[in-house]
């Protein structure tokens, strides 16, 4: 995963609350292999009108939005399903950071696992950033200092410290966990002794359909 330290790039605002995972990527696109590039599915339905044409007033359809790597939105961004495809759509669409007052829990951890920074700001700062990013504009996100700058405006953001470390280093969980292989083996053995009933046991009992 590509580490993040400072993103000096352009940003765009998406001034909506509850931009959920079903909006981020409609379910029908999730049958596609990742190799097709999920960026083309990002916010597919909500950025189009009833006839399927791009709505000119949708923020992500404005000139220059294609180049943006930072997205600012309102509360409860990424709420909903566990579909990591919502993160793939953002990442393949070129985004490296989403800024919002709150995120769906699973979305945020999926984001970190794909090198996308979920930066939490307070509601007022989100509104100020949205105002500053009414049109595509230069933005700087500094993960080490946890600060965001757009022109004169500078705001702080928060992020879980473990996630911050992972993003700064581009670390992958599977590599981290393999250092604990011995611990896992020992734990599993003790656990099986302590809770023998917790092993799934097909048992051969007849199928039953209790009400």
């Amino acid at each position: 995963m590509k580490p993040i330290e400072i993103l000096a790039t352009t940003g765009i605002g998406l001034p909506h609350a509850n931009v959920d995972t079903d909006q981020l990527i409609p379910a029908r696109f999730m049958k596609e292999p990742r190799s097709v590039g999920y960026g083309q599915f990002l916010l597919f339905d909500v950025r189009r009108d009833a006839h399927g044409a791009p709505s000119p007033d949708y923020p992500l359809n404005q000139p220059g939005a294609d180049e943006a790597e930072v997205l600012v939105s309102r509360r409860n961004f990424g709420a909903g399903s566990s579909r990591e495809a919502a993160v793939y759509a953002l990442v393949d669409g070129g985004f490296r950071c989403v800024i919002a007052p709150s995120f769906g829990d699973i979305f945020a951890s999926n984001a970190v696992n794909n090198g996308l920074l979920p930066a939490v700001v307070n509601e007022e700062d989100a509104e100020r950033l949205l105002k500053a990013l009414d049109e595509v504009a230069p933005v700087e996100v500094n993960l080490r200092e946890q600060r965001i700058r757009v022109g004169e405006l500078e705001v702080a953001f928060t992020i879980n410290s473990v996630w911050r470390t992972k993003l700064l280093n581009g670390w992958d969980d599977i590599d981290m966990t393999r250092q604990h292989e011995g611990d896992i083996e020992t734990f599993a053995a003790t656990y099986a002794e302590r809770f023998p009933w917790a092993q799934p046991y097909p048992g051969g009992a007849p199928l039953i359909g209790k009400g």
Binding site: R83, E84, V87, I106, S109, N110, N114, D173
Partner: peptide, 8 residues
């Protein structure tokens, strides 16, 4: 019991 993403 909780939901997880594909990496998890």
């Amino acid at each position: 019991a909780f939901g997880i993403g594909a990496s998890e």
